[in-house]
Each structure stands twice: as structure tokens, then as C-alpha cells.
Design a protein around this nucleic acid. Structure first.
Lengths: 112, 112
DNA sequence: TTCATATATCGTATATTGACGATAAACGAT
DNA sequence: ATCGTTTATCGTCAATATACGATATATGAA
């Protein structure tokens, strides 16, 4: 974004990792996709497109972000693609986020 | 973003709200700021700038995003600004995120 | 009042994101 | 082999995000 790529340098690995989870969740479409994948239990593929107010290529882009951040795995199944939530990564995400939340809540007392 | 502003239309309020939390956490600098504010207990002001590899104006921008998403409150205190973590909003965030995580983990079984 | 300090905002440049249509690639069916 | 279907990727455009320096504003100190 800016002149130099400071986005990942000078920060702790925890902050960078947490920011990755944040990035994954930072768009309503991606949250909706995760919920949809979870609710259908089975790996819906193009059905996601039908449920979202977005073009197929846009949904594919959002799926790619979710894949990059590890929350979702995709497998080819014939002409279709089968997307699943990666439960391990979801747990890892919740561990990181809860750790952050806990330390923020614990010490949030403010004197001003 | 695209031609039309579909970012917040056609999605559930929960998805939009969760995406807001995601946006707040989507940059390592903002995560670092939150941790810093929590660890110092007191409201550090420009000290944040000294602890981050970013210019003062950039830190100010990140603080604004955190304010917009409600995680942080700022008060003027003389020439300084006093930023505090809003514990209530942090709790609200964690409630939303944990609700999401729970439903994802609970139903993450995948047949493919 | 004048000066120094602290911070928010402005202006600007660049990178990334998000959106779409079009196309490519892979597969199943005919 | 050809056609239709599904999905990923490409090309492109607009909007947003990120970064910085410069500047405006407000306050406290001298």
C-alpha cells in the first residue's frame, strides 16, 4: 500500500497472524461463505454463488482469500469444486482471537 | 471495490458486523496498537508512535479505524490524546467472533 | 504573546481489494 | 470429437487502504 511494504515487518508474529484472520473475516461475503459452508454440512460448490449477491468470479476470489488464510480447503470433484471448512484452522483462529480478546479485556482498565 | 457498493447490501447484519471486527484487526499495526494500549494499562498517546515502525500520521490513521470500529475511545487531555480500549466493545466483538467460531467448528464436518 | 509540543487532518502517491465480464481449463455426457 | 457445465483465472476499472510529509489546530510553557 504505501511506499514501502511495512505491512509485515516490525510487528510480532502474533500480530501478523491475527491480522491474517482479520483479513479473512474483513468482508461480509467471506463471513457469509463460511457460515454457508458450515450450515450445509456438505461442501457446496457453485451453490454459494446462488446464495450470494455476487458474480461467480467474485465469489471465486473470496474463496481464494479464505483458502490463502487457511480457513477453507478446496478439492476438485469432477467439474465441480468442493470446499470445506478446515476445522483445525478455525480452532487455531479462535485460539489466537480469544487470546487477544482475553488480554484486551483483562487489562482494559483505563484511567482517563 | 467494485462498480456498485455491494459491500453491505445483501448480507445479514451479523455478517456485516463480524466483517467490521475483521476490518479492525486486519492490519498488524492495529493489533499491535490494541495490545500496546492493553499492556500499558494507562492510555499512552504518542508513545504508540515510538513503538511502531510507522510515521505519526499513519498511526493516527490506524487509531481512527479502531475508533470507527468502536474498539478504542479517544479523549483529548491537554496537548495529548488519551486512547483507551473500550472493554464493552471488545466483549461484544468476542461474543460475535466466538459465536461464529462455535458454529463453524460445530458443523465443520466435511464429506469430501 | 510567542514558542515548542502533540496530534489530527490534508494532500498525494502507490498498493491492494473488490467487482464484473470474458475466457480458459477440466470434466461428463452425448 | 463435440457440446454443455462448472470453476478458476485474466483483464480491467473503481474504490479503499496504507504510507508519508506537510500543515492546521490546540495546548502548555516561557
Amino acid at each position: 500500500m504505501g511506499v514501502t511494504r511495512t505491512r509485515e515487518i516490525g510487528f510480532t508474529p502474533e500480530a501478523v497472524r491475527t491480522a491474517g484472520w482479520g483479513r479473512a473475516l474483513a468482508h461480509p461475503a467471506r463471513v457469509a461463505i463460511l457460515i454457508l459452508l458450515a450450515e450445509r454440512r456438505t461442501c457446496v460448490c457453485g451453490e454459494i454463488v446462488d446464495d450470494l449477491p455476487l458474480a461467480q468470479s467474485t465469489v471465486s476470489q473470496h474463496l481464494r482469500v479464505l483458502r490463502e488464510e487457511g480457513l477453507v480447503r478446496g478439492e476438485v470433484d469432477g467439474t465441480r469444486s468442493c470446499y470445506c471448512i478446515d476445522a483445525d484452522r478455525v480452532r487455531a483462529m479462535m485460539t489466537d482471537l480469544n487470546r487477544l480478546g482475553a488480554s484486551l479485556e483483562r487489562k482494559a482498565a483505563c484511567g482517563c
